[in-house]
Amino acid sequence: MRSNSARRGSSRFAKKVGEIRPTQLLHSSGVGALIDLPNLSVMVMGLDEWDLTHSTVLTEQRLLAQVKRRLGDQVEQLLMPPAVQEGNGFGNDALGYENLVGVPCSPFPRWMVCPVCKTLAPLSSGLFNLDPKPFAPERSRFVHTNCRAKKPPAVLPVRFMVACEAGHLDDFPWVDFVHRGEKCERPQLRLEEFGVSGEAADVQVKCTNCGSSRRMSAAFGEQALYRGAALAQVLCVAGAALLLGEGRRPVPP
């Protein structure tokens, strides 16, 4: 698998971050699925993001006939997931071309928390940098470069997200939640935990810029969507998850 922070056709920012079996892609880890890697949580990108240059045609006519019977005659062929085949001349150079071939994925959730200073921010903030490990891709991680720790600590994906009843996912609206819908000029968030239970009532998000704070227990229950207008309704219209009135599809950060 490769993490890609660019659109299809650009491999400039692609990095290999792990491996899964082809059968996993067909079952539990297909398009839109979350995959829990040792240090990352990623979502498999849509087929329109896949580079099929290195996909082998599956020549199984009976299987193709069954697929056409289910989906229609517009299906022309079946392809294997993109992968570099052995004996293609690329060798085993972990820093070379073959390191860019694979199934594209994107980090999700896109909000991370530093376990040392408790900084809570999205990957788009630039506070966290990917630390790729070409020779051990499963050890790839995001780190907080400017943390007060002696060495940049590995940051963790937040364990809260939102989903509609149809299963569409989106990031939790941290800024709107902690400010109860009010505007903050320069929100700077921290995610603090009190005690060892891990319950939502013991987890607090705080803005160090304006002082606003809120316990995560306020995000649960039947009235959570209506408390202080901090959490807008999560709707599902025409197959798209809408959060805070904005429809989004999974895209690289």
Score class of each variant (00 low, 15 high):
204 Q>E: 10
37 L>P: 02
191 L>F: 04
230 A>P: 06
69 R>F: 08
139 R>H: 13
158 V>P: 03
120 L>P: 05
206 K>L: 12
205 V>G: 01
220 F>C: 10
152 P>S: 03
213 S>L: 10
166 A>N: 11
24 Q>F: 05
191 L>H: 04
235 L>Y: 03
89 G>P: 08
52 L>F: 15
32 G>N: 03
80 M>S: 14
3 S>P: 01
110 R>Y: 03
193 E>M: 14
92 N>P: 01
173 P>L: 00
9 G>Q: 00
178 V>M: 06
123 L>G: 01
110 R>M: 14
129 N>I: 15
53 T>P: 05
85 Q>R: 12
135 F>L: 11
18 G>D: 04
137 P>S: 03
57 V>F: 07
232 A>K: 14
246 E>K: 14
92 N>I: 10
26 L>W: 04
150 K>G: 07
14 A>N: 11
27 H>K: 05
231 L>H: 04
247 G>E: 09
98 E>T: 09
198 G>E: 03
249 R>K: 10
87 G>K: 02
201 A>E: 13
129 N>Q: 11
114 C>P: 00
70 R>A: 07
123 L>K: 07
170 D>L: 01
182 E>Y: 07
21 R>Y: 05
162 V>S: 00
127 L>F: 02
36 D>F: 11
138 E>W: 03
219 A>M: 09
93 D>T: 06
37 L>S: 06
27 H>T: 15
21 R>H: 15
201 A>W: 12
121 A>G: 00
205 V>F: 00
171 D>M: 01
36 D>W: 08
51 D>Q: 12
27 H>M: 12
4 N>D: 12
43 M>W: 01
34 L>D: 10
95 L>H: 12
31 V>C: 00
95 L>I: 08
189 L>A: 05
169 L>H: 09
57 V>M: 03
206 K>R: 13
133 K>G: 02
251 V>C: 09
106 S>A: 12
229 A>S: 10
42 V>G: 08
204 Q>Y: 07
51 D>R: 00
95 L>F: 15
58 L>Y: 12
74 Q>F: 15
8 R>S: 11
171 D>C: 06
200 A>Q: 04
189 L>I: 09
231 L>D: 01
11 S>D: 11
155 V>Y: 11
139 R>Q: 14
225 L>V: 15
251 V>L: 14
159 R>E: 14
46 G>R: 09
60 E>N: 14
43 M>G: 00
97 Y>P: 02
247 G>H: 05
126 G>R: 00
16 K>N: 15
118 K>A: 10
205 V>R: 07
125 S>H: 02
